[in-house]
């Protein structure tokens, strides 16, 4: 099953995407903590894209898809008309440095990388395509249990 949602790059739409994902993960019976982690990951990436989009003064569209196959959840996020984002250049947050620099940002991608099993960004036609994957073994267990019931 694949689910899709498209938004304009505006902060007010973050809640809309979270509610969309919350409903899907509730149907999939993903436990609350893991559900929150998955929603957070998408929220963090969207927040980054929206903030950068606002800097370039261009209101763009962002497409998000969610699929689940054999207990693995995959998100794809399409960030159109963007310069290449080189994920390999990202360094995990150093909390002492953030404190010293009185920075509000800098922790989002660290959260994403800590939560997901795989995070990739590919670049095609001026579009960064984020692909995030996480195995949720209990989804397979739940399905096999349902099969026997």
């Amino acid at each position: 099953m694949k689910y899709n949602i498209s938004i304009k790059a505006e902060k007010k739409n973050l809640k809309k995407v979270r509610t969309f994902l919350e409903n899907i993960f509730a149907q999939m019976q993903v436990p609350e903590v893991e559900r929150n982690q998955l929603i957070l990951v998408v929220d963090e990436i969207l927040a980054n894209l929206i903030i950068h989009s606002a800097k370039s003064d261009m209101q763009k569209d962002i497409d998000i898809s969610l699929s689940e196959n054999a207990g693995e959840v995959t998100f794809e996020i399409y960030d159109y008309n963007s310069p290449y984002f080189d994920l390999t250049q990202h360094e995990d947050a150093n909390l002492q440095d953030l404190k010293k620099q009185k920075r509000k940002g800098g922790m989002g991608l660290t959260l994403v990388k800590n939560i997901m099993d795989e995070v990739e960004v590919s670049y095609e036609d001026n579009t960064n395509i984020w692909r995030l994957q996480k195995k949720l073994p209990f989804l397979i267990l739940k399905k096999s249990k349902n099969t026997y019931e």
């Binding site: 979270r18 929150n36 929603i39 957070l40 929220d43 963090e44 927040a47 909390l95 953030l98 404190k99 009185k102 920075r103 509000k104 940002g105 800098g106 922790m107 989002g108 660290t110 959260l111």
Partner: peptide, 14 residues
């Protein structure tokens, strides 16, 4: 719900 933006507020004032 809290995202890094919320936690970042605390960090920035420490």
């Amino acid at each position: 719900y809290i995202s890094s933006a919320g936690l970042g507020v605390f960090m920035s004032h420490l």
